[in-house]
Each structure stands twice: as C-alpha cells, then as structure tokens.
Design a protein around this nucleic acid. Structure first.
Length: 162
DNA sequence: CCACGGTGGTAGA
DNA sequence: TCTACCACCGTGG
C-alpha cells in the first residue's frame, strides 16, 4: 500500500507499517496499481506521512530535516540494521567511505558487505546512503542510479564531475 | 556450498 | 592514470 509524495523531482512512494515508515521508493514513470490517497491513511500514519513529506522536501532542498517519522527497519537483517543506523548518523553535507562505515560498526573488514547493505537501504534519501563514497573520495555506486547520488550530494554542496 | 556485490589495496604498465 | 588481481564478508540461491 504505497502512498505518493509529490515533489519537484517526481512522485516518491512511501510505505508504512504499524510501527512507522518502512520504505521509500524513488519516483517511477509508471504509476503503480494499488495507489492510495493519503486521506485514506489511519490517523497515526497520516501524521507520519506529513512528516515524511516535509522531511523529503527539506532534504531535496539541501536542508536538514527538522523532524522525521519513526522508521520500521525490522525487515532487515541485524547486520543491515546496524549499517542503516550508522548511516543515520552521517550529517548533511558530510561523507564517509565504505571502509569508515565498516569500522564504525566494529567490522573493519566488512567493507564490501557494507556496500551491499547500503544497496538494500529501504529508505533512501532520509537514511542517507548517498553520503557513503568509495575510497579516495570517488563517487562509488548507487542502487537508485548514480544520477540520483550526484544530485542528492549536489544539493548538499558536494559536487562530482562526470 | 557457491557466486555475487554500491569495496579497498597493491602492482605494473 | 587505468587495468588486473586478490582478500574480504553478508546474502541469497
């Protein structure tokens, strides 16, 4: 049950569980079938949706979100949740390497696994996996497409050629 | 088991 | 610089 969020960059899709925002999809060209109107959301979710919408707009505008809805990351493995929570600590405009992220969760040799976990991040943009770069300050990869990674970083004042 | 990644480091052109 | 090669480790088949 996806709920749309219209932005200047297209229509994102938000998914909620009983415990909070559990997934955020980048805009797609074809609208999915079971689309619901936000007005049909149960009350707590409606407030989360308002927060998600505002936070998304703020990040896309290059500002730190003043408030976030609760996240439900329970679908991830324990390792993935450790990585995702570590991602949340990277402040806007800052970056880390995959190696630094691995070290920050106490597994310095799991750099590659960290990359996989970033790719599995269910809430891109708000859980800023785009702030993780390869060593030597190279861009690295991005599941949502490198154009998005460049765009999001540019909004934070970090420019990458190519 | 095995193969695959959003990696990182080294070696050699 | 760029390419080749290898160690690394969580996931999914």
């Amino acid at each position: 049950m996806p709920f749309p969020i219209q932005t200047s960059e297209g229509s994102f899709l938000a998914y909620y569980s009983e415990n909070g925002l559990e997934r955020l999809d980048f805009p797609i060209h074809r609208e999915p079938k079971g689309l619901l109107k936000p007005a049909e959301l149960p009350l707590p979710m409606r407030q989360w949706h308002t927060m998600t919408t505002k936070a998304l707009e703020q990040v896309l505008a290059g500002h730190a979100p003043e408030a976030l809805p609760p996240f439900d990351l329970s679908a991830g493995t324990e390792f993935q949740q450790r990585v995702w929570n570590a991602l949340r600590r990277i402040t806007l405009g800052k970056t880390n390497s995959y190696a630094e992220m691995a070290a920050s969760i106490g597994q310095p040799k799991a750099t590659r696994a960290v990359g996989s976990a970033c790719g599995a991040n269910p809430i891109p943009v708000l859980i800023p996996c785009h702030r993780v770069l390869a060593a030597n300050h190279r861009l690295g990869g991005f599941s949502g497409g490198l154009d998005w990674k460049r765009k999001l970083l540019a909004r934070e004042g970090l420019l990458f050629p190519d």
